[in-house]
């Protein structure tokens, strides 16, 4: 069991990654950026009186706003960092001419891929953990419980897993790291935009056909977008949607759709963010298997042991 869990690629990267100043500098830079943006956000909010206008009188609501801002900010940063972390892992092995050396060991292509992904996720996890002090600010205001934050962090990991597997897939597919990185960012951006636009369009078509809609309709395309899941998760955690501006923006469709009747199938009965997590994880697993298939030396010949 222990041997099965042991992954040489992961073990080696965990050991060497924490060495030297690079990782420490990366974490510092990450937190610096997050603090900076949070600071700007608050400055603008206070100056424009938005905070005040949005019932700043209630400490709970203020805490909620800080939380939502940090949650979305960290989500955006993870979307930015993960491709950079993953889109080079296989292609750089190829560029360094070390991939062959790895492939002719006892490690299977899939375990190489998984080791690489877990190494990247370990780094993302480190970033997320390092942001805990920032998030604990929220507890000062109240309104958000530690388990909400834990749930959010879990969703981050799932998002990083899904986005990371896109990066790994491209890095297995393309010879050059530059190409794979660019294509990964483009894909993520494209999927993010297209899924929301297409989803909104499908919903508007659906509801315009039914004069007085009573069913609960979420187009499947929305399930591939983790931003949608994040919106749903945050909306649930924030509670009453009507007091929440944020919810009004991202959770628009879901707020509408949820207020319309009850969900139909078992999958749609699941909280949207859980369904979303399941779908993106499933896609990620497929992409990882595809990556392993791409790098395995024998493609046509059968090579069962």
């Amino acid at each position: 069991m222990k041997r099965w869990l042991y992954n040489p690629v992961l073990a080696s990267s965990l050991k060497t990654r924490m060495r030297g100043w690079r990782t420490a500098a990366a974490v510092t830079a990450y937190l610096g950026v997050m603090l900076f943006i949070a600071y700007i956000f608050f400055k603008i909010s206070v100056e424009n009186g938005v905070m005040y206008y949005l019932s700043f009188s209630s400490s709970r609501s203020a805490g909620l706003r800080v939380y939502l801002m940090l949650a979305v900010l960290q989500f955006a940063l993870i979307l930015l960092v993960t491709p950079a972390q993953t889109a080079g892992v296989i292609s750089s092995e190829r560029e360094m001419q070390t991939l062959d050396l790895l492939l002719c060991t006892k490690m299977s292509p899939l375990s190489i891929i998984i080791g690489k992904l877990l190494s990247s996720l370990a780094f993302i996890l480190l970033l997320i953990i390092s942001s805990i002090p920032l998030f604990s600010l929220v507890f000062l205001f109240g309104g958000i419980a530690p388990e909400d934050v834990a749930m959010l962090f879990l969703f981050y990991i799932i998002t990083a897993f899904a986005v990371g597997s896109i990066g790994i897939f491209y890095s297995a597919l393309f010879k050059r790291t530059v190409v794979s990185t660019v294509v990964t960012y483009i894909t993520i951006f494209f999927l993010g935009i297209v899924s929301v636009v297409l989803g909104a369009y499908m919903m508007s078509v659906h509801y315009s056909q039914v004069p007085s809609p009573t069913d609960h309709y979420i187009p499947f395309i929305l399930y591939i977008n983790p931003a949608v899941g994040l919106g749903d998760l945050l909306a649930r955690q924030a509670g009453d949607p009507t007091t929440n501006v944020y919810y009004g923006i991202l959770g628009l469709f879901f707020g509408v759709s949820r207020s319309l009747g009850s969900p139909q199938g078992w999958f749609q009965k699941l909280p949207l963010w859980i369904g979303n997590s399941a779908v993106i994880s499933g896609i990620a697993v497929l992409l990882l298997c595809a990556s392993a298939w791409v790098i395995r030396p024998y493609k046509r010949l059968r090579c069962k042991s």
Binding site: T16, E95, T98, D100, K106, P297, R302, C303, S305
Partner: peptide, 24 residues
Amino acid sequence: FKDPIKAREKIGYMPDFFGVYDNL
């Protein structure tokens, strides 16, 4: 080709061009 995994145990391969990890 039938059993590459077992064959790999018997074979040590040194490629003509190879790289090394810079952080090890």
